[in-house]
Amino acid sequence: MLNLWRKIRAHGRVAEPPVGGRGYPLVPGLRGSVQVRHVDAGSCGGCEVEIGAAFGPVYDAERYGARLVASPRHADALLVTGVVTRNMSEPLRRTYDAVPAPKLVVAVGDCARDCGVFKGAYGVAGAVGDVLPVDAEVAGCPPRPEAIVAAVRGLTGR
């Protein structure tokens, strides 16, 4: 037992350093680990499939320190997909309010960035940037999982 402690002390962290990435996080307080809450503000479902793939076994965004969580109270960042519909604009604002600071918002997909093909539709309140301050954007309709993973790595800095 004592031997094991000694080894732990001698070696420190044994994990491999991350390859690529920016090496520094977007926000200093969130280095290496970011808990992510996904919010569907009015998406068609395409971005959800890609997020599922990004956090699945093939692209495995979790190895870069990001993890999907079930409540904004547990989250550091919001992953918002879709145009912000009128019905979802208030819940989205409340969700953002429920996230403890420091907090980040990632707009995933073209709809979230600039309303995409739904621009001007009657039920649309606007893009995510019209409702919340956006820290990072992922382009594409839908964006490829690599792009989502790259954005997430931007948050964690790994």
Binding site: S71, R73, E90, P91, R94, T95, D97, A98
Partner: peptide, 11 residues
Amino acid sequence: RRAARLWDCGA
């Protein structure tokens, strides 16, 4: 500390 609304799933 920050006073926030009780989390009610935003609904």
